[in-house]
Structures are given as structure tokens and as C-alpha cells.
Computed example of a mutant assay.
Amino acid sequence: MNWRAPERLVITEDECSVFFVEEKGRRSKVYDFTKLRVSTGIQRWLAQSFARATGPTSGVKRITAAASLWGGVQILAGHLGKVIPPVHQPADITAAHIKESLLAVPLAPRRPT
């Protein structure tokens, strides 16, 4: 048999996605970066970064951990999609953009210890 593992990072003219499989192979998910309301250049950069962060040699072994990272990607992309002047390429992203996206995240209520 000539079995090959599926491509994890797929970037084509029409597609930009990352395929994540849990370490034990029980669950998987495709993360579609074309749904993010940012430029194609930013989508591709985020997908490449996400693929590295969730790869086989990373510490991300469970789908819940990948989903948590995906949430961070969505927050950053949501912020970048609204900034003026718009950012079109990863080189346009500044430390202030990152800081502002983090500050826009509401803090979860904490229980007293």
C-alpha cells in the first residue's frame, strides 16, 4: 500500500486550512482560515503559524487545546479585520495590534479561593 498521511496545511487559491489530529488519532478537525475576515496574506500567515503550533512535535495533543488556540486566532483576526488603517500583510502587524487584541478579550469571572 502507498498510504500517505493527509496534508496538515493546505494553502491553494481557494483553500486555506489546517487539519489537526489528536495524538492518539481518535478525533480530528479541519480549521478553515478562509472564514476569517482578514486579507488572504494574513489568513495564510495565521494558518502557517497555527500548523506549526499544533504540529506533531508541539505540546498540543488534544483537540480541546487546538480549539483554545483557534479561539486566540479568531480573536486576533477579528481585531485585525477592524483596524484602521487596515493590515494586509503580516509585516503590517505591530505590537500595538497584538496588545489591543488581547485587551479586547473579556476576563472570565474568578471564583474566590
Results as ranks from 00 to 15, higher is better:
Ile63Pro: 00
Trp3Pro: 07
Ala66Lys: 04
Leu69Gln: 10
Ser28Phe: 05
Arg8Gly: 02
Phe50Glu: 02
Arg26Ile: 11
Ala53Trp: 01
Thr94Gln: 14
His88Thr: 06
Pro86Ala: 13
Phe20Cys: 08
Ile63Gln: 12
Ala91Phe: 07
Gln89His: 11
Arg44Ile: 13
Gly71Met: 04
Gly55Gln: 08
Gln48Glu: 15
Lys61Ala: 09
Ala96His: 09
Ser49Glu: 11
Leu69Ile: 10
Thr40Gln: 13
Val87Leu: 09
Ala65Pro: 04
Thr34Pro: 00
Pro56Glu: 12
Arg111His: 13
Gly78Tyr: 09
Arg37Asn: 12
Trp45Asn: 08
Ala91Trp: 02
Leu36Gly: 05
Leu102Glu: 07
Val60Ala: 03
Glu23Phe: 02
Gln89Lys: 14
Lys29Thr: 06
Gly81Trp: 03
Ala66Gly: 04
Phe50Met: 04
Arg62Lys: 15
Ala66Pro: 03
Leu9Met: 06
Ala104Glu: 00
Val10Gln: 10
Pro6Gly: 11
Cys16Ala: 04
Leu103Pro: 08
Arg4Gly: 00
Gly25Trp: 06
Leu102Trp: 15
Ala51Ile: 00
Lys24Ser: 09
Val73His: 03
Lys24Arg: 05
Leu80Cys: 10
Ala66Asn: 09
Trp45Asp: 15
Gly72Met: 04
Ile11Gly: 03
Trp70Val: 07
Ala53Asn: 11
Gln74Gly: 05
Glu100His: 14
Ala77Gln: 07
Leu69Ser: 01
Phe19His: 15
Ser68Glu: 03
Arg37His: 10
Ile93Asp: 06
Val18Phe: 05
Ala51Gly: 08
Thr94Val: 11
Ala96Met: 11
Cys16Glu: 06
Pro85Gln: 10
Arg62Tyr: 14
Val30Leu: 09
Phe50Asp: 02
Thr94Tyr: 12
Thr57Lys: 13
Val83Gln: 00
Arg8Thr: 05
Leu103Glu: 14
Arg110Leu: 15
Val30Phe: 05
Ser58Leu: 03
Thr54Cys: 05
Lys35Pro: 01
Val60Tyr: 04
Phe33Ser: 03
Gln48Asp: 12
Thr113Ala: 14
Leu80His: 01
Val38Trp: 06
Gly72Trp: 02
Ile75Tyr: 09
Ala95Glu: 14
Pro90Lys: 07
Ile84Trp: 00
Glu15Gly: 01
Gly71Ile: 09
Pro86Cys: 01
Gln89Val: 07
Ser49Met: 13
Glu22Thr: 15
His79Tyr: 13
Lys24Trp: 08
Ile63Val: 15
Arg4Asn: 13
His79Trp: 12
Val87Asn: 01
Lys61Arg: 15
Arg27Tyr: 00
Ser28His: 08
Arg27Phe: 04
Trp3His: 14
Gly71Thr: 09
Lys24Cys: 04
Thr34Glu: 10
Lys61Pro: 03
Gly81Asn: 05
Leu36Cys: 04
Ala96Lys: 14
Tyr31Cys: 03
Thr54Ile: 08
Phe50Cys: 03
Ala47Cys: 05
Ile93Trp: 07
Leu69Tyr: 07
Glu23Lys: 11
Asp92Thr: 00
Ser17Glu: 09
Phe20Ser: 05
Trp70Ser: 00
Pro109Leu: 13
Arg52Thr: 14
Val87Ile: 11
Pro6His: 11
Gly78Gln: 07
Thr64Gln: 11
Arg26Glu: 15
Ile98Ser: 02
Ala67Gly: 14
Ser49Trp: 01
Arg52Gln: 14
Arg37Tyr: 05
Phe33Met: 02
Leu46Arg: 02
